[in-house]
């Protein structure tokens, strides 16, 4: 290894203590090496001082569109599958329920140890993030609640308010999905049923319908019936509402 390589190795933290001492001595005794050392120092400093470059705000809105379309497409595909026949609907419903159950169990076990220690931090983070201007931050807040083992009523209420009021459909959808863990609570189901009457976004609406249907909440029958007759809704949303009624009333 020549001296130049030793200098690079020094900056790459590849030299042991004795080699560093040898290099320092050589640099002290040799003017050319000293100059070379200065030049590499400046070069490595320039890496650390490299300016941040930032994309324009357009990139964020383009990404939001792409994500919204992907979410809607996912919902539509699920719908097409469901419409292929009652048997498939039943099978799909069972698969979804088993999947959700297994997913929940797996997720719960995996998260338990980590989350107990981080619970306090998560509550704090959630309350800070949910008021952020950025929809990304608000989704992150919802994710925190979603991954919390036993969220308190404050956190659940924040999820409900987010589902009802957030201006971004992606955030509302994330909140609805997170609320599924709390469907056994009456007040959560009441809020979901209220949202059935107010929500306009198809992807969010379908998620609410599916959750209430899976839970077979008979209180949802009347608003679901109203949805089946709402001609301003997409047909696949009306069909989903109709399937929800079948699912809730089946034994």
């Amino acid at each position: 290894m020549n001296w130049e390589e030793k200098i690079i190795s020094f900056f790459e933290n590849e030299l042991d203590a004795q080699e560093i001492l040898d290099l320092q001595e050589a640099v002290r005794m040799n003017e050319d090496l000293s100059k070379m050392m200065d030049e590499y120092t400046q070069l490595y400093e320039s890496f650390d001082n490299a300016p941040q470059v930032e994309p324009s705000a357009k990139l964020q809105s383009r990404f939001d569109d792409v994500l919204a379309n992907a979410v809607k497409e996912k919902s539509s595909k699920a719908m097409v599958f469901n419409l292929n026949g009652f048997t498939k609907v039943a099978a799909a419903a069972v698969l979804i329920m088993v999947g959700v159950f297994v997913g929940k169990e797996y997720s719960s076990r995996q998260d338990l140890n980590d989350l107990n220690d981080q619970m306090a931090d998560m509550r704090y983070d959630m309350k800070s993030l949910i008021n952020d201007e950025s929809s990304t931050a608000r989704i992150q807040a919802v994710s925190l609640a979603h991954n919390t083992q036993d969220p308190d009523s404050d956190m659940i209420n924040i999820l409900i308010e987010t589902m009802a009021d957030d201006k971004s459909s992606n955030v509302r959808l994330a909140a609805v999905k997170s609320l599924e863990k709390h469907m056994q609570k009456d007040f959560v189901r009441v809020e979901l049923i209220t949202a059935l009457n107010n929500e306009k976004d198809p992807a969010v609406l379908i998620e609410i319908i599916q959750q209430l249907s899976r839970f077979k909440d008979k209180e949802a029958l009347e608003p679901l019936d109203k949805l089946t007759k709402d001609v301003e809704l997409y047909k696949f949303v009306r069909d989903e509402a109709h399937l929800g009624i079948i699912q809730i009333t089946s034994t």
Binding site: Q60, F63, G103, T136, I139, Q140, S143, N170, A174
Partner: peptide, 21 residues
């Protein structure tokens, strides 16, 4: 990957800068 597509927003927020850069 399990279908929680909305969470990609968080990764976008963290990585849009480095990838663009």
């Amino acid at each position: 990957a399990r279908g929680e597509l909305q969470q990609l927003s968080v990764l976008f927020d963290r990585y849009k800068g480095p990838i663009y850069s």
